[in-house]
Design a protein around this nucleic acid. Structure first.
Lengths: 224, 224
DNA sequence: TTGAAAATAGATCTACCGTCCTAAATTTGA
DNA sequence: TCAAATTTAGGACGGTAGATCTATTTTCAA
């Protein structure tokens, strides 16, 4: 895991004013990305939102590419910090902790920031290698808790199998975003769907075994 | 469900040449959207790809908005046609049909078109009402098969509960796209994850009941 | 065959884009 | 205090965006 790179010029952001400016720039960029989408994110809009000139903005970020890379880092770091304290608040039994984590993640999908940011991130990752790396880094860390709990609840799985189960659970919840996210048509059904998710995932983790994961589909079995 | 609107001017596309042109435009637009993303989709790129001038392109689609609306329709109709014949190929038992549908949908996630198109659609739906409507229309129809099979396997659910279960299953599979889609890091784990999904979803549908879906989370129970 | 409708090319307009440059103003540590 | 470093404003450049207009060519049915 690489540490965050220094993306603006050496020297920039050394005065307190500069450091605050960088934060202002990142916050404004984040807001514009969330409300207008990647296509609507321009250096001029960012500069106007911050209240500076484009020239000044390019002083901090020589290219738009640099800014976006730093923006993704900034937003993602925020999410990772949120996830860090998740488990400490839950109970002691692994099953209870697991369900608590599930509920918390789904609850977060309802925030407008999450609802709008992640689809942008997924789309960006399809066309930009840097965005893809950042995204994988984020989800890898976000899965650590789930992965550990899966291991506690079901010790019979191999590392590889456990990670597949964790990925399936994590990805499944992400998939709810365009449907039960903020302002989405199924948003009011969130409680029921959350219960369905918790019930489904918990049983999956408790009962899945290596044979089921490794099973060949019927077509492949016939050929074997 | 509205029928597809006539989005280009009356008169256009009446000659055979014009009809073929429209198809060429939509295909080229689709390719560019998939490879370059929404931000990289411009009238000029489309015109160049088709081999016509921008003026000619605007003859068919007065505004870019019109073109995109028609493009979404075109791509989505293609997917709906694919989904229509899914169930006929499976066995007779509802459980077998259900698993077959699950496997087919996940298999489709691996195609580059699906992997790249849907994240763009989700992002577009967040900033464009038309795209949101098209998307909901698509997923509603795509869920019809799953929804019917869920009802056959588990007749004890109300209409509302059944639809929540179907939505959860459908959304979960969509969520796999950014992870096991074409070129994605977990792509090689698709077989195992598919087995996990089939196992998990089938048990969910067979055993879920109204009480579990309607259950209040612990925090809410304490307040009641 | 022919003429009306459709299709096309090409130029042009305005707006916005990212980037670069220079000079002035501000900050901060020595 | 004061000089060096940082921050800022403002303009300019070339490129591309969507959209519009006009003139020309092509299509196709009567």
């Amino acid at each position: 895991m690489k540490k965050l790179e220094q993306l603006h010029r050496p020297g920039t952001g050394t005065y307190v004013k500069g450091q605050e400016r960088i934060l202002q720039i990142l916050e404004a960029s984040r807001d514009i990305l969330i409300t207008n989408g990647y296509a609507g994110l321009s250096m001029r809009k960012i500069a106007t939102a911050v209240g500076i000139t484009v020239g000044n903005l390019h002083y901090y970020y020589p290219t738009k590419k640099d800014l976006i890379a730093n923006l993704l880092d900034h937003v993602i770091v925020g999410y990772l910090q949120d996830f860090e304290n998740v488990r400490t608040e839950a109970g002691t039994a692994p099953e209870d902790q697991f369900v608590a984590v599930i509920r918390l993640i789904i609850e977060d999908l309802n925030t407008p920031e999450t609802t709008n940011f992640f689809p942008e991130l997924w789309a960006m990752a399809n066309h930009d290698e840097t965005a893809a790396e950042r995204m994988n880094e984020l989800y890898h860390k976000a899965r650590l808790d789930i992965n550990e709990l899966v291991g506690l609840i079901n010790p019979g799985l191999s590392d590889d199998e456990r990670e597949q189960v964790s990925l399936f659970i994590s990805a499944s919840m992400e998939g709810l975003t365009p449907f039960i996210g903020s302002g989405k048509p199924w948003r009011s059904k969130t409680p029921g769907i959350t219960n369905i998710a918790a019930y489904s995932f918990l049983h999956l983790v408790k009962t899945i075994d290596s044979e089921t994961i490794g099973e060949l589909p019927l077509a492949a079995q016939a050929q074997a």
